[in-house]
Every structure is written in C-alpha cells, then in structure tokens.
Simulated assay, not measured.
Amino acid sequence: MPNHRRPTKRNRNAGTKKSGFKRQSPFTIPAENQLPFYENLNLQATVQKKINGKRVTFLVEKLTSGYSYACTIDDLCRVLTYCPVEDLTGLSLFILRQPKKKETILSPCWGRFVYEFNYQGTVQPAIIIEAVNPAKEIVVKVSDVSLFFQRELDQLGKEGHEIRRIGKKVMVKSSLQSVRSTQLYRTVLHEVGHHVQTKRAVGSYLEKEVFADNYAKQIRALIPDE
C-alpha cells in the first residue's frame, strides 16, 4: 500500500501543551521550607545594639562571591538615632541579606520593609537591606520613562550612580559608595517611614510611597553630611 504520510505536513500538536509547550517550570522565586523567600536566611552573625535606649537586633547573612554590604551596622545605627523614639517603637529587627540569583532578576531592590517577619517564633516588623554586586549593572527595560521613574534616575545620579540609556534599556552602574549613599540615607529611612505609616491613616499605595519618601527627606535633613 502506498504511504500517504506527508513528512512536511505540520504536526497538529506542535506548539501546544500536548507537545510539551509551556510545560517547563515557571520562572519564579522558589519557596523553601514553606517560608517567604526573604525569611530563608543563611546567617553569619547576630548582633545586638542599642538605638536611642532601645535594644535592636541585626541579622547578617553570609555573602556569596562578588557581593558586599554597602552599609555597616554602625552606619545604620548612626542614621537611625535621628529618628524619633516613638517612630522606632515596635521596630527592632534589621537584616543584612544576600539575595539569590532569581531574586536579583525578578525582585531586585535596595531594601524592603516586611510587616510580619517570623524570627524565632515571633512575628514582627523588619527592615531588610540587600547586599549588592557592584560589578553587575542594573538593567531596566522600559518602553517609556515616566515622570516618577525619571525622578528616581535623577536622584540615583545625584547619589553617584552612572546612568546610561541604550534604546529601551536603562543601565545603572553602581559603586559601593553610591549604593551606600542610596541605602543609608534614603532606603532605610524610607522603610522606617513605612513602619510609621502603619500607625497612621495612610490610604492608597501611592499615598504610602509619598508619605515614606517625605519621611525619609525630613530625617535626612537632620543628619549632618559626612
């Protein structure tokens, strides 16, 4: 019998789930031990300090090759002393954290405020400051630069970061000194502002961000330049 099969004819399953299309694992930040990714810590040290008479815990995670912490614990303590005592009430946990590779791609940040961080069985607010690799440029793909984003780029430029635009990409080249300037005098104080706003009636996401930005600017104005 003649073979009616046509090898050049397209398989009807090509490009569908039946042929395996999109069956690969999703590119997401993996969960470990059923904990949020930022709670999985590989601790190197735990340090106790006093800020404005209050005991504060600093958790320091081990660094991987090429990464560094731009801020020291003493740096953070010095800046936090300029925050009113009542603003730090209930906030006694700070973490210097090493981000994983996928996190630097999917959820990059200088730092973050966590409303409920589980540490040693106690759920409490915490501020996380991320380690950085100055050898790696931050690449942001944008179709259009909004006014808000342009202001952020301008601020990063003032803090010593090198900003380049290539087509639809924005490249940010940082040094440890420029990251220190950003994290120490803006990120940390911004996250403290988020803690303060939990005690006040602050509404939408945008309003919360504006409140935290203004709080950081107010406290920064109190801190003498180095």
Rank of each mutant, 00 (worst) to 15 (best):
R23K: 15
E159L: 12
E116W: 00
V142D: 02
D144H: 09
P2L: 11
S25N: 13
A212K: 09
I51N: 05
P30Q: 11
V192N: 01
P125M: 06
V140I: 15
V145Q: 06
A70R: 06
Q98T: 13
Q177S: 11
Q24I: 12
V47Y: 10
D87G: 14
R12P: 08
W110E: 05
I51M: 05
T182K: 04
I129Q: 15
S68D: 06
F211W: 08
S174T: 09
E207Q: 14
L80A: 13
V114D: 00
F58V: 09
V139T: 14
P2R: 15
L106W: 06
K169I: 06
E137W: 00
P134E: 06
D213K: 08
F21W: 15
H195P: 03
D225K: 15
G15L: 10
K50S: 10
V192L: 02
L93W: 05
H161L: 07
H161G: 04
T64I: 04
N42V: 13
N40G: 09
L91N: 09
F27Y: 11
L63N: 10
S65K: 15
R112I: 03
T46K: 08
F117S: 05
T28L: 07
V202W: 05
I219S: 07
I127G: 04
F58D: 04
K168G: 01
I73P: 03
L59M: 10
F117H: 02
E103I: 10
P36R: 04
K50T: 09
V123C: 01
K158R: 14
R151W: 03
